[in-house]
Nucleic acid binder design. Structure first.
Lengths: 266, 266
DNA sequence: CCTTTGCGTATTGCATACAATAATCACAAC
DNA sequence: GTTGTGATTATTGTATGCAATACGCAAAGG
């Protein structure tokens, strides 16, 4: 509830305007605070004071994507600034960052509310998401280093182990890392950024879909096929597999949303 | 040079957090202030005072994508706030918006500079851009209304007419409208948004590539093929054609950048 | 009883003042 | 002559105060 808990991160040096990279790093750091996920944080012998608006944005983003701040909830500046012990100015900056990420909707004189995407918007986002991931996979087949591929294999093993332990949280983390690292292997900064953006916007529903799904069946065979295509450097096949795979994720999300949405869309 | 020239826009009612939609609208409104491009602006009998940060952001964005503010140029808050007759607070908000669009790079305590993407970054962006456009084309083949297709045909005619008049500016505008409307026909909000974002970041180089290219040859045959595929509702073919087409745009951009970049990348 | 209009309150938008940090330049030591 | 260190200056980050706008409620009129 305090901003300090966010401050405890390894504090990867703020990379200029790298909002999505920062956000992706936030997910990696917070969701997988135990398992080694991706590249190690940069050297950082500096304490890296990490600008206040980014801290606040990271804090609120965490609350939103983990469903602590529910969709549709209003965010008032004055109470929050008092609670976080900061002034309204950096808080406003943080809200602007989250607005750019489309995690909050901001009406002119009516304040900010947590974004509540309709089921159609979620479907559209997932469509683009899978397309970007397919593109990334194609590029990864051309440019991925063996170390990257090995890391992706490791994520698959982590997923399997987590599934057998019925550890949904670790499963979710490994799944995230699996997909993010496939795109990261493309070495295309713009692609990684856009994919990361969508991943954040979809994070909450995907998280809830995994955590709440009744019959939780691991699509290990699909992931195995994906890995095989990656090993064979077959980009076209890999793209098709990923799109098919994500359509499965869509079904889970749609089921969740259909069940928990008696109200009219925002 | 004054903010008033931006204020003169039709002032489409500020749609909440719709930064990219707003930006795309800005391009449409500014680049094609004469030709009828897309859907008419909303009713808006209200003057729509249009928040100050958005006005400033639109102003600066216009300066950036039309190469008035050169890449690498520093943007100081105090002089600009004095020049634009506004306080530093809304100006800072505007810079945050542009930072989210990656039109400016913002270092922690070192201020803002106009983004200067390297040639590799431009290549990466164009790769994603074409991929998104291919996806949009595929969706458009399923969902495009006859009116949308007719409008795209009209843009093609406008391009041809502009080319015969050797009117590069109108040519560029029609070309923009052509590509944007293909994606708009997909009816996928997330896709339109992301494509629009990339379009803005690429706007400057594409603009300069058209305006400065020595042997300016219109790729009418490619556009005709694209239109034919759209009429035939052949999404796969349309996607391939668009990717090929954009690779041509890439060659023009690469030529321009290679010529005008003796300095080291940022 | 419903509708409408006016006022009170609350919240956001903008401006300005202050503090902290980084870049610059001069000066001295090597 | 060059390099390191110091202070100075300029620019950004943060805090707070004021003004404008929108929401909610109450009261009056139909």
């Amino acid at each position: 509830m305090d901003v300090e808990e966010v401050d405890g991160q390894p504090a990867a040096r703020w990379s200029g305007a790298a909002m999505p990279a920062e956000a992706a790093a936030a997910i990696a750091a917070e969701d997988a605070s135990q398992g080694p996920v991706s590249q190690a944080p940069v050297t950082a012998p500096f304490v890296a004071p990490l600008p206040l608006p980014q801290q606040i944005a990271a804090h609120l983003r965490d609350q939103i994507i983990h469903d602590v701040l529910k969709p549709g909830a209003r965010i008032r500046e004055q109470p929050l600034s008092a609670e976080l012990k900061v002034s309204r100015t950096p808080l406003r900056d943080a809200l602007k960052i989250l607005m750019a990420e489309r995690l909050v909707d901001l009406a002119p004189n009516r304040g900010a509310v947590v974004a509540d995407p309709s089921i159609e918007e979620l479907r559209d986002m997932l469509r683009v998401y899978s397309s970007l991931e397919a593109l990334g996979a194609g590029l990864a087949c051309e440019r991925a280093s063996p170390a990257c591929i090995a890391r992706i294999h490791r994520h698959q093993r982590d997923m399997l182990a987590a599934y057998e332990r019925r550890d949904r949280l670790s499963y979710f983390r490994a799944n995230q890392a699996f997909h993010l690292d496939i795109v990261a292997a493309s070495r295309n900064a713009a692609l990684i950024e856009m994919h990361g953006r969508l991943n954040i916007r979809l994070h909450r529903v995907r998280y809830l879909a995994i955590m709440a799904h009744q019959d939780w069946t691991f699509v290990s065979n699909q992931h195995e096929a994906i890995l095989a295509a990656l090993d064979a450097r077959d980009g076209d096949l890999l793209g098709r597999l990923l799109v098919d795979h994500l359509s499965g994720a869509w079904r889970a999300v749609a089921m969740l949303e259909a069940a928990a949405r008696p109200r009219a869309a925002e």
